[in-house]
Amino acid sequence: MLALLFSPLALAQGAGPSVEMAPAGITPVMRGKPGSVELDFRVKQGFHINSNHPNSPYLIPTILKLDPPTDIAVGAVDYPAGRNLSFAFAPDEKLNVYSGDFAVRVTVHPLHTVIPGKYNVRGQLRYQACDDRACYPPRNLPLHFEVQVKKAAARAHTRHSRQSPHIHN
C-alpha cells in the first residue's frame, strides 16, 4: 500500500531521459567461429543521445562496454551512423545523434575450446541525453544477452564422383 501511495513521487522523479534495450533472445553461435548479435535500443520520445561519433570532441559518445565470460571473445562493435540534426539551442550546428530506435551489432567469437552451452554476456551502454532545452548527466544502462554455443557441424564425407556408390569410405 505504501509503495502505491509513494508512487506519484517515484513517477515524478523518473521523468528524465531513458534508453531501453529490447530483450535480445538467445543467439546461436558456432564454437570456434565468429557470430553476430544485434542489440536493439530505444531512446525515449523527446530525447536524443549522442551517436558513437558526435561532431564535437566535447560531446560524450554512446559506447557499449561488454564484460564477456572467459573463452568468449568480443570482437568488433558496429554502431549505426547517427543522424545529423539541428536543434533550437544550436541552430547553426549539426549534432550527430541517435533518437528513436537504433541497433548495435556485436561480434562474439567463442574459442574452439569452450564447452558448448548457454553463456551470458553482461555489459553497459554509456550515453548522454538531451532534450530541446536541457542536457542530462551521462548514464549507464546495464544490459545482458545470451549466446548458445554449439559444436560446429561434423564435416560431411565427400565422395568422388567417379567412385562406385557401393564403396563406402
Binding site: 539551442f89 550546428e93 548527466p137
Partner: peptide
C-alpha cells in the same frame, strides 16, 4: 558542462 550544448 562542456558536453551541454544548450549551456553554450
Amino acid at each position: 558542462a562542456t558536453w551541454c550544448e544548450p549551456c553554450k
